[in-house]
């Protein structure tokens, strides 16, 4: 069973062709890391999967349902797909607990007590249950991103999307977020992760997809991709990104 299918997806921003014939499938339980230089369309691609951006050509199927203008189908899909953003996007006027219980209560129609119990269990999993009654502004960046992960998990999604989850963090906070993501990967979640963290890709990814100029240039298991890149573009990208390693 394929969790996500992208079939010849094309997208334009005005006259700018940002996604070119993207074809990719993600199997249930598979962890895919998407990398590529900035402006390569990787964020746009992942945002198309839960229709924060709409595509103009091709087909996208998520959990067997096609993404169209049909709002009911969209609601069903968004319920099953959790997303974590680069800039956390926690709701600053709600407590950590309220951030986590909002969607379960109103979208899943879960009783409040049950939603709070669920939220606390996920906050424990990301190791910050003691912050539950604080506001996002009182937490560090790493803590906020872990709350964002817990908040997405509270909807019990089948698929998790990560859009550069560590890019806005200070170096010492990156590890705590990556550890949370590794633990999630080990639990069997289907994950699509846009990131530059090659160590994370090596450790958890089943497959790495390299994008450039809006198209998928190369994809394969991380070991093969990093040790024996086939295309010049990937070689160039790896030489730039791994210089610091």
């Amino acid at each position: 069973m394929n969790a996500i299918v992208l079939d010849k997806v094309n997208k334009w921003f005005g006259t700018l062709h940002v996604l070119r014939d993207i074809t990719m499938t993600v199997a249930t339980g598979e962890k895919v890391v998407v990398c590529g230089p900035s402006g390569s369309g990787k964020s746009t691609m992942i945002r198309c999967i839960n229709r924060l951006e709409s595509h103009q050509e091709g087909h996208i199927f998520v959990d067997g349902t096609e993404l169209t203008d049909d709002l009911r189908a969209l609601d069903t899909i968004r319920r099953e797909v959790g997303m974590v953003f680069q800039s956390f996007n926690l709701f600053p006027h709600l407590t950590i607990l309220e951030n986590c219980t909002l969607a379960p209560i109103w979208v899943r129609k879960m009783p409040k007590a049950e939603a709070e119990e669920l939220a606390m269990s996920y906050l424990e999993r990301v190791k910050i249950p003691e912050q539950a009654l604080k506001y996002p502004g009182q937490l560090s960046g790493g803590q906020q991103q872990r709350v964002a992960i817990a908040r997405a998990l509270c909807m019990r999604p089948k698929i998790m999307l990560f859009d550069e989850p560590t890019s806005a963090l200070d170096p010492e906070m990156i590890k705590e977020v990556l550890d949370t993501m590794i633990a999630l990967a080990e639990s069997g979640m289907t994950m699509v992760v846009v990131t530059h963290e090659m160590g994370f890709a090596r450790q958890v990814a089943d497959r790495v997809v390299f994008m450039d100029m809006g198209e998928i240039v190369e994809s394969g298991p991380p070991k093969r991709m990093f040790e024996a890149p086939e295309t010049d573009r990937l070689k160039l990208f790896l030489s730039q990104i791994l210089r610091g390693d």
Binding site: R78, F85, N89, H93, W106
Partner: peptide, 29 residues
């Protein structure tokens, strides 16, 4: 910030839930 609205969308909140719980409380403040 646009991210607030996107986060609410991604969680599956409807337009009026998003407006009532996320957008208006912050915007009016």
């Amino acid at each position: 910030p646009k991210g607030q609205s996107e986060a609410a969308d991604a969680m599956g909140l409807s337009y009026w839930q998003k407006t009532g719980f996320i957008i208006l409380p912050q915007a009016l403040r």
